[in-house]
């Protein structure tokens, strides 16, 4: 049942990001070339709504469906946020896809995106195989 809810959330998310075309290589190119504001406005308005919602949830003391306290804990910074972030940014510009959109491109019938996914799995494996040697 729980897993069905996650599939349903993913379905709605995939639908919205596809209709917004944030899964498009062309849109990513236009963003990094500053040719259109679409991507910046999508991300900016998403963060504005997300941040406002979190403030409202915090102030109202809302709890999850299961009655737990909501978990807003962020991630602890290490150097990988910078090094890994830059590496990912390059990959984002090359493939025209960040992780969510890789799956959306596949669902949208862009079969070459299967190569992007295969590469991403190898990349994630290589990170874990080498993480003790990387600066953190």
């Amino acid at each position: 049942m729980k897993n069905f809810v996650y599939v349903l959330f993913g379905l709605l998310f995939g639908f919205v990001i596809t209709k917004a075309e944030v899964i498009s290589w062309f849109r990513i190119q236009s963003m990094f070339r500053f040719e259109e504001w679409h991507m910046y406005l999508v991300i900016g308005s998403a963060v504005a709504v997300g941040a406002l919602s979190v403030q409202l949830l915090k102030r109202s003391g809302a709890r999850s469906l299961a009655g737990e306290e909501l978990d807003y804990k962020g991630k602890t910074f290490h150097k990988g946020f910078i090094y890994g972030g830059v590496i990912f940014g390059i990959g984002w510009a090359v493939t025209g896809a960040c992780p969510g959109p890789i799956f959306a491109q596949i669902g949208a019938g862009e079969t070459p995106a299967l190569a992007t996914l295969a590469g991403a799995l190898v990349g994630a494996y290589l990170y874990h195989a080498n993480k003790s040697r990387l600066p953190h």
């Binding site: 997300g50 946020f81 090094y83 590496i87 990959g91 493939t95 960040c98 070459p112 295969a118 991403a120």
Partner: peptide, 30 residues
């Protein structure tokens, strides 16, 4: 695409998150 995908997989795991985890969720919790 495979090579670019490797950068996406390696980079996001090294950075402990991607555009949704950091840029949407992370920025939303300031």
């Amino acid at each position: 695409l495979f090579a670019g995908g490797m950068l996406v997989g390696f980079g996001t795991r090294y950075a402990n998150g991607c555009t949704s985890g950091h840029s949407i969720f992370g920025l939303s919790i300031l």
